[in-house]
Design a protein around this nucleic acid. Sequence first.
DNA 1: CGCTCAGTTGACCGAATTCAATGCCAGTGG
DNA 2: CCACTGGCATTGAATTCGGTCAACTGAGCG
Lengths: 239, 239
Amino acid sequence: MIDGLIQRLRVRDDVSDEEEEALRGLISETEEFPARVTVLRREKLLDRSVLLLEGLMCRSKDLPDGQRQITALHVPGDFLDLHGFTLKRLDHDVMSLAPSKVAYAPHDRLIRLTEQYPHLTRLLWLTTNLDAAMHREWVLSLGQRSGAQRSAALFCEIHTRLSVVGKAINRRFEFPLNQTELGECLGLTVVHTNRVLRELREIGLVTFRRGGVQIHDLEALETFAEFDPAYLYLEKLSR
Amino acid sequence: MIDGLIQRLRVRDDVSDEEEEALRGLISETEEFPARVTVLRREKLLDRSVLLLEGLMCRSKDLPDGQRQITALHVPGDFLDLHGFTLKRLDHDVMSLAPSKVAYAPHDRLIRLTEQYPHLTRLLWLTTNLDAAMHREWVLSLGQRSGAQRSAALFCEIHTRLSVVGKAINRRFEFPLNQTELGECLGLTVVHTNRVLRELREIGLVTFRRGGVQIHDLEALETFAEFDPAYLYLEKLSR
DNA sequence: CGCTCAGTTGACCGAATTCAATGCCAGTGG
DNA sequence: CCACTGGCATTGAATTCGGTCAACTGAGCG
């Protein structure tokens, strides 16, 4: 059930059978959500963290004048708010972008885990640091890449992350955002997002259609985006 | 010596005397750097983490075509690469912006700490999650705020963070970036950075001069920037 | 004095936004 | 079956924000 998480961790380090059991013991219950509902609201005090099992979710922040920015996308196997375990409240909302299934990890169980499994604690800590690494890449993207490059880089990132959990096949993956939401990831208006998508389609790199993404030429897309997956830390090291 | 760090932690949670001792025991040695040198280079494998004691540093990423983005600024009391404790290598460079002093925390000592002090481990984990929260605010800024707002928001953030460690007095603080570097934080060119700074100065909000920042009207600046310090987590909670 | 480096300004250009209209379904109720 | 609706996607035209190029200033310094 939490295989996605274990898969993601085993890409980066060894996880013993005992540790795997401890991880399974974290989960208290599961819940399902339809697409486009707010799953976690900022400021509320937290006593559990949420692991995404199936579907797609995002975190978003907004400004008083109503502008919204999506700060992260989450695929199955990702914790949505493990940072909330230490922060105790969120600085952003979490919303489902597709029908999704989650599992809850109560904070008291996480505290016990930090007391009994230091190595596993470091691995969970690692996953929040991966989130931060992705944030930094988005900062780079928003600060320095053009709209089209930004879009291409995002498709490369999601393609790589979904591949790790076996959900990208033949350079195709489910990606049920609409163009407004994609624009909120990229810091672009819908109108310009639409133009950028047309450009990427017309030069034969990638086609985005509501529901999914088909990459036509992965190598060319990565070159165009100046994409380097180093920030996703896909290598196995003792942590 | 590591008082800045302890000050920052005690804003967010209680730190016992024993834990304070354990933190002091982390440090093996210190080192000083002049301004504008690369302190850590991306990709190198790490066996220690670096705590900033005095000065100012930044993390930066760049694209193959030479464009550079500063992804974070660090003030005294910040770890520069505690995320490197679990990631084992960095995805960015770390550079000094002012003459600085650092202390080293070898990873084997950090591992021992995670085995003996779970609560303190959670507090150190917290600090990396604070970094991620700041990254998210920068994503919001770069995606949705105008150049001038972005600049104002950055000044608000640094003012608040320096206040915590007693380094902002009377709405004035040292900030020895040049306009090129400030532009690399904001995703703007030097030329436009210059114009934005003039605008902020002329409407009486804030004056940036190489070396320091003087805020003229803090409340107006925060309103202009749509700044809300919630993402800095300045409240004390049991973690 | 001439050099360099940072800051500043103007003229022009291009990327992205804004505003507005149109097209395209899928669903739904008559 | 068709008319009507609402949500997205798409396109055009005008505008603006920020970038590019280039020149100039001023301070510090050997």
